[in-house]
Design a protein around this nucleic acid. Sequence first.
RNA 1: GCCAGCAUAGCACAGUUGGUAGUGCAGCCGCCUUGUAAGCGGCAGGUCGUCAGUUCGAGUCUGACUGCUGGCUCCA
Length: 613
Amino acid sequence: MATMTPIQELRHSAAHMLATAVLRLFPDAKLDIGPATDNGFYYDFDLEHKFTAEDLEKIEAEMKKIAKENQKFECFEVSREEAEKLISETPALSEFKPGRLADIPEGEKITFYRNGEFLDLCAGPHVRYTSQVKAVKLLSIAGAYHRGDEKNKQLQRIYGVAFPSKAELEEYLHNLEEAKKRDHRKLGKELKLFTIDDSVGQGLVLWTPNGSVIRQELQTFIGEELFRQGYSQVFTPNIGNLNLFRTSGHFPYYRESQFTPVIDQEQIDALAAEGKTCADFSDLLNAGTLDGFLLKPMNCPFHVKLYASQPHSYRELPVRLAEFGTVYRWEQSGELNGLTRVRGFTQDDGHIFCTEDQIHQEVCSCLELVNIILTTLGMKDYSVRVGLRDPESDKYIGKDENWERAENACRAAAATLGVPVVEEKGEAAFYGPKIDFVVKDTLGRGWQLGTVQVDFNLPERFDLTYTGSDNTPRRPVMIHRAPFGSLERFVGILIEHFAGDFPTWLAPEQVRVLPLNDGLVDHAKNVVAELRKLRIRATVDEHSDKLGAKIRRAELEKVPHMLVIGAKEMEAGLVNVRSRADKSLEGSCTLQEFIDKLMPLIRERRLNTTMRG
RNA sequence: GCCAGCAUAGCACAGUUGGUAGUGCAGCCGCCUUGUAAGCGGCAGGUCGUCAGUUCGAGUCUGACUGCUGGCUCCA
């Protein structure tokens, strides 16, 4: 058992107090587990009665009472037989604790903790007294499967947070409110970056003009890097023959998470005439006897076919194909989330076909690509995960020795990053291991962005070859990579990363010209025309408002640069710069001088240097 | 998909124990012609998510559905 920090001990103790309170109010509740989490704690209960919001308040009040009672947390070690006896004698422990006890390996200490009337099988440690939990708040009720397995019973989980002092709790709740202000769903609405319309479909993103600028700029940015790395840009269709995906192994294996295939009406009519039912259709689809088309859930098979459309010599390798490929996946409705989890999204996808000797170099280049992105955008807070196969699971295809080679290739390449890397079993794709870059959103949830995957399997399934120097056919290795991951998710995270305050090169509107009065609007329009000739995204605020109101509007809309033009400026041929992105630009200067200072921010994709509160 | 909560104008919200909807911002129209984060006045805008039910009467109560939010499971 990993050692706990003092705050984790406190939270773990709060979980016990939660269970104590629940049992006082609901004596029938059965206990599963109650660990400390990143910010707080939870406890899982099995109970006929469904907890309500009012229950939560009562439970919280009872917890505070328990804190006042100043119960002592007492630990005592027991033998396995004694443990079994204690569990069977305690109704609340009788349902799940025998299983939890069985998890404790032979020879390891078995401990119980007691506070007041409450008893729990628990490795601890705890704080000494319940009174040390000075600030606690229950946040929500959720369903959670026993042992995290969908096939098991769903329990009721109560989440809460706990702190050593009220001030810290207040601070936490305040920070939570602040974090919600930069939530990409909120900012997306306020800054008109994207919308999702129920009548179009759940999880299907409509990119507004503003959001589209950001997406387009990102595509241009990565496109330049891809060109440097020797990629070829390709385009492929949005649907493909079902058999293509049968060959790749995606169908019917991932059928549940794909949109229903498009089936030819004649086939349906013929089968209907035979009296077939819907269930029959489904079976025939899975068996491969029905033809049809699938909205593509991924781009790989298309790139594979592009590669296979011509013979290749070892001299041409690596072949690097890139595409902004839009894919569609039927994600469970409860999983959808703003831009970060959607049903239709565009990957900055690419596939490299190379020799085994080239794997290391190519994977490293892919990682460099991700690095360039994260550095350019100032995203320092990410973690790197090497996703390996879970040897227990049967979802992985391909030979063991290939898996080993691929996994070693990923390990070796990830090691060159010079940042901590976590290896995780069961995180691999079904065709190969991968290196993922995970970034947290404003609420602390981790999202996979960039990914690099080594794949020995698809080349085999599609019988891909190249001609070696000895004039014999060889099998290439495929590397799948998407440095952004998906543009939707990336932009979602990016909105939160910048809190909507995009650097100039990404800002949907880069410059707003603010004429001091209506008489200066025409002149302001001329200034905008000059800027737009240089592809600078500029507009005029034509409202008949006071300057203060126009500035307020531009500030709220997070336009990085404002040009104030009054009679003085017009006469002298100047503009007065107010900039939220870079204070060094501020002051009066000629339009040309402003442009000369602005263009490097755009061309060099600089980050903002200043932010106004 | 599962558990819980939520659903009132474009947006942010009010709406007391059931008596057929209000405020601010945005929008439109006027007046003001403005100097670094909100000038003034007027107008318009809602089958209160949808469909049933209870009731003389439902935004308020009940049920189902849809969607959203937080979790769980999943994530090629």
